[in-house]
Amino acid sequence: MNDFKTLRYDERGGVAWITLNRPDVLHSFDTVMMHEIHRCWSDLRTNDDVNAVVLTATGDTAFCTGVDRNAAAIGDADRPRDLGQQGATPLHFDDPGDWLPPKTAGRLWKPVIAAVNGMACGGAFYLLAEADIIIAAEHATFFDPHTTYGMAAVFESMMLLQRVPLGEALRISLMGAHERMSARRAHEIGLVQEVVPSDELAEAAARVAEVIASQPARAVQATVRAIWYAQELGYRQALNVGKAVVQLGTDEKDLADGQALFASGRRIPWRAR
């Protein structure tokens, strides 16, 4: 996966690094980027060399600013048929959300760590809402400008509500471009799990991704799937599904290795967060 036009892709230590790379338009996405991101998620499902993913962007100005409204492929009336209204009525409609989120679009249950290196707004929430862990640079900001420019904030706000309290989702969506949430506030409400200085962002993301990638893949992926089931289903439904997931996520060799490690008395070095 090294022939991308809008992304940089690298693998090291069981971790795939996907870097958005359209800095001239603040990493907003056109249809090319949408297809390339979707291809990454799909290909990673079958890439057994990768057990965790870091998603970030080049530079330190922006992580992603949503749809590139100046791109002919999205903004013009003759945009490709894989985006926007299909046919004479609005009942057949394709949205960027069909292509970008790792769980919805890619059915990917390998953990995705988002390293937010600057401004994240609008359609960036297609990516962030389905990341598993978000780490932000201190200068990162979050906002949704849809309403300011006469557009309803619908899919992004629905997805954001899976990660933040109701009032916070409403405030981000309704304040539009007039207010930005700081990385500190995003951490306070649980949208972001860690805030670090800008020059430590890649190291912090690598630390989390590499630890996760070093652990048994089946157990890790089943854990991710179980937690998202619990987020999406009713409580009792999730517990019932969990009875199957716990069986699927248990590999006898991994379990034996883990028991041997515990019995050896050697304890895992840990750090406080």
Rank of each mutant, 00 (worst) to 15 (best):
I268M: 03
A152H: 13
L233E: 08
G106T: 10
M119R: 15
I212Q: 02
C40M: 06
A140Y: 14
R69Y: 14
P216L: 03
I212A: 01
G258K: 10
T31Q: 03
D254H: 07
V196N: 04
S173F: 06
F262G: 01
H38Q: 11
M159F: 05
H38K: 08
G97F: 07
R273N: 05
M181H: 01
V211P: 05
I212F: 02
V241N: 01
A272S: 11
P197A: 11
F63Q: 04
N240H: 03
T147L: 12
N240A: 13
Q86K: 09
G87R: 10
R236M: 05
R225Y: 07
F63G: 11
I135N: 02
P269W: 04
H38T: 04
R185V: 01
Y126I: 02
F29S: 02
I268R: 12
R12K: 15
A230Y: 03
G66L: 09
N2H: 15
V164G: 01
M34R: 09
G97Q: 06
S173R: 12
G122K: 00
V112K: 07
H187A: 07
D98V: 05
R184M: 07
V154G: 11
E156K: 04
Y235I: 11
A72H: 09
F125E: 00
A230T: 07
P101T: 03
N2C: 06
L261W: 14
R271P: 00
L255Q: 12
L7E: 04
D254V: 11
Y126S: 01
I172M: 13
W99L: 05
Q247T: 06
L26E: 08
R39Y: 03
R273K: 01
D257K: 10
A137G: 15
Y149P: 04
W17E: 15
A72R: 11
V224T: 13
V67T: 15
E11C: 08
D30H: 03
P269R: 09
E188A: 02
E194P: 06
A120G: 05
F262P: 01
D60G: 09
I172S: 01
N240P: 03
Q86Y: 09
L166K: 14
N70K: 12
P23M: 10
D49E: 14
V15A: 00
L44A: 13
V54Y: 07
V116N: 03
N51S: 14
